[in-house]
Design a protein around this nucleic acid. Structure first.
Lengths: 229, 229
DNA sequence: TACGCTGTGTGCTATAACGCACATAAGAGC
DNA sequence: GCTCTTATGTGCGTTATAGCACACAGCGTA
C-alpha cells in the first residue's frame, strides 16, 4: 500500500507505531462509522471507548453556563479521542461531537488501558499527541480572546481543510456558529465577507475554499502557530 | 509534621507519591526561590528544569501576534511546571511567569527524564495533573469567549486565593491586565466595581478579598468548574 | 519640601459582537 | 406548479471593550 494512500485509510497516530506494536492492537480495534453531528461524549459522562479517527473529524467543545459552547480542539487522523483515559481519568470533562462524517477505529476503555500498559510506543505517541493538543487548546484560549469572528472562521476552515484533506465540505452557518461560540448571523457576515473577497464560496451548507493562501492571510496567526505543534 | 503544615512546606504532587518514590527523588530536587515576575520559559525556548512550586504561584501565558498575551493556566503546589518534558517535548510552547513569589523545588530536565522512566507513581500523578491542567485550559478558552472582564477578574482572584491560601496578595492592575489580556483601564473599572460592592479592597498593588462568597457569586461558573477537576 | 515614579481614576470616540425580528432564497416533497 | 423547510441575508438598537489621552494620588528620595 503506497504511503500517500495509507494516510487516508488509517489513523496516523497508530500508523506511527512499530509494526509489531500496531499489530498487537489490531484485534481490539473495531471500525465504526461516525455520523455527522453525533455526540461521542458529554461532560461528566463515563468514557466507554477511545476513538482513532481515520477519515472522520471530531470537535472538542467546552460548555459554559449549561447552554453555550465553544470549540477548543479539533482532532482528525493525527490523534485520538478519549485522551482522559490515557491520563488515568475515565470521565469526560467536555462534549465531543463528530464534525466531519467518516470512519474511525475504536477500542473499549478497559481493553485500551490494558494495551496501553504494555505498549510503550503507544504511550510515547499518546504523550506527544497530548502535548500538541494542549498547545492547540492553549492557542485557542488566546485566540478566543483576541481575534475577530472573521479571523477565527478563516482559521477554522483551514484547520478543517487540513484534516479532511479536501477544499470542499458540508457545514452550515448554524453549525459553524455553534463551533465558534458566536451567533449564526455573525458567521453569515464573516463568511459573506470572505466570499466577496473570493476566498471561499458557499451555498446551503456547501463550503468550498477557493484561495487557500488568501484565506490563510485572512486568518489569524493562530493557524500557523497550531500547525507547528 | 502535621498534615496541615505539610501542604505549606512541600509540593503536593510530590507529597502524594509513596514515601519510597518520593525519597528517591529528593537528592535530585533543588530548592529555589522564585522572584515575582521572573520568566521561567519563553515560547520556543528549551526547557532546562521542571519546577514543583511549594508556596509560589506560576502563570502560563499564550502569546499571540508577538505582543499580546493571555493567561491560560495557573499552577501552584498542586502541580508541576514544565509538563511538556513529561510528554516527551523539551521546548516550551508558551511563556511561563512567576505570579506569586515563593519557593519551588526544581530538577534538571535530563535527570527528571531518567527518574520519570523508573518512577511509575510519578508518571501516574503527572498524567492526572496533565488531565486537570488540560481541563483548566479548556475552560479558560471558553471563559475568554463568553465572560466579561469583571467575571474573569473575580474568578482569577479566587483562583489565586485558593493557591496562595491567603486573602491578601500583591498585584497591580497593570499586572492583572496582562494576565487577563485586557487593558489596564478595564481592570481598574472591574476592580473598582468589585470594591464598591465591598467584595475586595485594594490600594497600590495590595489586594484583599473581603467577601469570598460574594466574590464567587460575581465570578463566572468557570471558577467552580475548574475546582472540580 | 519638592520632585518624580508608580499606581489608579476618568473621559472620549470607535468598533465588534450581541439579541431580536424579519426578509429572502434554494431545494425537497407533494 | 405550490408549499414547507432549511439556509442565508438584513436592519436596528445595545453593550462590552478597545485605544488614546490626561488627571490625580500615594509614597520614596533628593
Amino acid at each position: 500500500m503506497p504511503e500517500t494512500q495509507q494516510v487516508f485509510t488509517t489513523n496516523r497516530l497508530l500508523a506511527a507505531l512499530p509494526r509489531k506494536d500496531y499489530e498487537r492492537l489490531l484485534p481490539a480495534l473495531e471500525p465504526i462509522p461516525l455520523a455527522f453531528g453525533s455526540v461521542l461524549a458529554e461532560p461528566g459522562e463515563r468514557i466507554r471507548h477511545v476513538y482513532f479517527p481515520v477519515d472522520s473529524l471530531v470537535s472538542l467543545l467546552t460548555m459554559v453556563d449549561s447552554k453555550k459552547a465553544a470549540e477548543v480542539g479539533l482532532i482528525g487522523s493525527e490523534g485520538m479521542v478519549g485522551l482522559p483515559v490515557a491520563l488515568g481519568v475515565n470521565v469526560s470533562p467536555i462534549r465531543v461531537v463528530v464534525q466531519g462524517a467518516g470512519t474511525a477505529v475504536r477500542m473499549d476503555t478497559a481493553r485500551f488501558n490494558g494495551e496501553l500498559r504494555r505498549n510503550f510506543s503507544l504511550q510515547r505517541e499518546l504523550l506527544r499527541f497530548t502535548h500538541s493538543l494542549m498547545a492547540q487548546i492553549s492557542q485557542t484560549a488566546a485566540c478566543n480572546r483576541f481575534h475577530t469572528v472573521g479571523q477565527r472562521l478563516a482559521r477554522w476552515l483551514l484547520m478543517t481543510r487540513d484534516r479532511v484533506r479536501s477544499n470542499q465540505f458540508r457545514l452550515t452557518h448554524e453549525f459553524l456558529a455553534h463551533m465558534l461560540g458566536v451567533r449564526r448571523v455573525g458567521v453569515t457576515q464573516a463568511a459573506s465577507a470572505l466570499q466577496q473577497r473570493k476566498l471561499i464560496r458557499y451555498s446551503r451548507g456547501n463550503i468550498t475554499i477557493l484561495d487557500e493562501a488568501g484565506l490563510a492571510a485572512a486568518a489569524c496567526s493562530c493557524y500557523e502557530a497550531i500547525r507547528k505543534f
